[in-house]
Amino acid sequence: MTTLYLGGYTREQPPGRSGLARVELTGQGFGDVEALEGPSDPSWLVRAPGTHDLYAVSEGDGQVVRVRPGQGLGATTDSGGRGPAHLALSPHGRWLVAANYVSGSVGLVEVGQDGSLELVDELAFTGEGPSDRQDAPHAHQAVFLDEEDLLVCDLGADRLREVRVGERALRHTGDVVLPPGCGPRHLALAPGRTDLLWVVGELDQTVHTVRREGGAWTPVQNVTTVPEGPGPGETTTAGIVVSPDASHVYVSTRGTDTVSVYAADDGGMLTLRQQVVTGHWPRFVGWVPGLEGERLLVAAEREGSVDVWAVEEGMLEETGHSLAWPAPTWVG
């Protein structure tokens, strides 16, 4: 049995609910959902290591919150900007970095040994892109490479921002330039490697292979997630996850409502192997904790569903296990 947590938007919930919940998953499927006290709009969550606690963004309030499931809210601090959409925890657990989509900035939060949270620095970017959604920077995700270095996906400026954590401060150290109009949303590192990652281009429905050679990151390939063309309405690529052995990359696309399965060679070059149809608007994909590489979770925001897919030799197979829950944006 695995305990999963669900995050989503408060406005999609019945009155009095926060958008945070807990559910058990077994080999027979999902149990009953337990609504939990949480912050407003907990659209992205991170598990606090060594405890049952969670860290959450409160997207509408511009805050980072520690949540003790079943016990209420703990420490709270500002996210360092407006519209936090993602939260990353450093490998040793000292730092949280909030990616603030609306303000195009990132906030550095120090995690105290007593569980306290303190915003100690914020860093704003500049730039724009050719799309009408790229009139300004839009930080969508931060990913730690180690305890000091991280990459930030800037959807608004078609850049991966290279950032370093110093003495309770953030420093912008460089940029990885991606094709104009791609809109980098999320990236995933190749497990066990420090020289390879893949980036989702939300706006042009692409996945980019990026390799590091001689200390510099360089895009070397981009492939489409919509080989048959975009859907009839809005089509935007969303989530990405990589198998533990780095042999397969899984990417969700909203509008076509698909998850694409790519085989990755040793250099990270991708070949499309499979596309499966999901619920409407698959915003999030991620592994079932403890079953990485074996069970994939797909959260379809507008469908209001979370589905479990089995993975066999990299390929996806339906399990029939599906949970109805309003507007899920994170599960894990």
Rank of each mutant, 00 (worst) to 15 (best):
Y55S: 06
H52D: 15
G74L: 06
V65C: 09
G74I: 06
R66K: 07
T76W: 03
V67T: 07
V57C: 01
G60C: 13
D78N: 15
G60I: 13
V67L: 02
R68S: 09
T77M: 05
E59K: 04
R68V: 11
Q63F: 07
P69N: 13
G72S: 10
V65M: 12
H52G: 15
A56Y: 00
Y55I: 06
G50D: 09
T51M: 12
A56N: 07
Q71W: 07
G62T: 10
D78F: 04
L54N: 08
A48V: 10
G62W: 08
E59L: 05
G62Q: 10
P69V: 09
D53T: 04
S79F: 02
A48G: 07
G62V: 11
P49W: 05
Q63C: 10
R68D: 01
D78Q: 14
D53K: 09
Y55V: 07
T51W: 06
H52I: 14
Y55Q: 05
E59D: 00
G50F: 08
V67N: 05
P49E: 09
G50N: 14
S58G: 12
V57N: 00
S79Q: 05
P49L: 15
G70Q: 13
A48T: 05
L54H: 07
A48Y: 02
A48S: 14
P49S: 14
V64M: 04
V67G: 07
D78K: 15
G70K: 14
